[in-house]
């Protein structure tokens, strides 16, 4: 118990003092996960909408694959991205392994299926009559998509929360493709693992508190935005 209390006390001191190493880790975490979620949104929302609205052979199979992707184990994603970026791999020439870019790629592979799957579900749960009504008023495809996304904004924001929560808190993939290099690819989760292994519980607690705080603040902001839109 003393160990935990002491660790928590020291962690607060580190945070209040503004430890530069911790801040560097926090900023990199936000940069990597924020970029990954943004890319996943740009890919996932159009793809999820198309999946929800289109009819083509094999659509159910694609949806099943996307839904399976929502539960990909991060270490498996890490393994495949590592193999892709490995010097002798198909993308080895890009020299991205053990860089933040590699971590973004891995996190996109984790977040994109979540956002595609939840977007498709959000659009599909809308009243089908609404789509017909919008079309019959003379909306083109772009307008239809925009209106449907606006109508489905509550579950879509839940998709953003799930995607961000999934990548900011995962450790396996970023550890494998980033390498946890100090000052370059060390993020909150990998740093926490390292500090715990080294017995630096105070630093690990500080990092964990920051991780929890970020997750809470991002979700709080999205929830306020979501509920403001929902109680119009």
């Amino acid at each position: 118990m003393d160990l935990i209390l002491q660790g928590a006390k020291h962690a607060l001191e580190l945070l209040i003092q503004g430890d530069p190493e911790i801040f560097q880790v926090v900023l990199l975490s936000l940069r990597v996960s924020g970029t990954a979620v943004l890319i996943s949104l740009l890919l996932g929302i159009p793809l999820g909408t198309i999946l929800a609205l289109s009819e083509f052979p094999g659509r159910r199979l694609v949806l099943s694959l996307v839904n399976t992707g929502m539960g990909f184990p991060p270490v498996v994603v890490g393994l495949f991205v590592s193999m892709l970026l490995w010097r002798s791999g198909p993308l080895g020439g890009l020299d991205l392994l053990y860089t933040p870019a590699a971590m973004v790629i891995a996190q996109v592979a984790l977040a994109a299926p979540i956002i595609i799957g939840l977007t498709a579900a959000a659009i599909q749960q809308l009243n089908p009559k609404l789509r017909l009504q919008i079309l019959s008023l003379g909306a083109n495809r772009r307008q239809l998509m925009w209106i449907l996304l606006r109508e489905a904004r509550l579950p879509l924001l839940a998709a953003v929360m799930a995607g961000f929560g999934g990548v900011i808190s995962e450790v396996g993939a970023v550890m494998m493709v980033g390498g946890n290099v100090k000052g370059q690819t060390r993020v909150l989760t990998t740093a926490t693992v390292l500090e715990t292994r080294m017995g630096h519980f105070d630093v690990a607690i500080a990092l964990s508190l920051v991780l929890l705080g970020i997750t809470f603040l991002v979700n709080l902001a999205l929830t306020i935005f979501q509920q403001r839109g929902g109680t119009r």
């Binding site: 009559k129 609404l130 017909l132 019959s136 008023l137 003379g138 307008q143």
Partner: peptide, 30 residues
Amino acid sequence: NLRRRVGMVFQTPALFPMTVEQNICYGPNL
């Protein structure tokens, strides 16, 4: 253009969750 020339009213109204005015101006706004 065809759908603007040939309007359709459905069994259930399916109004959008906005004001009556916004609903009526919906088509012209498109």
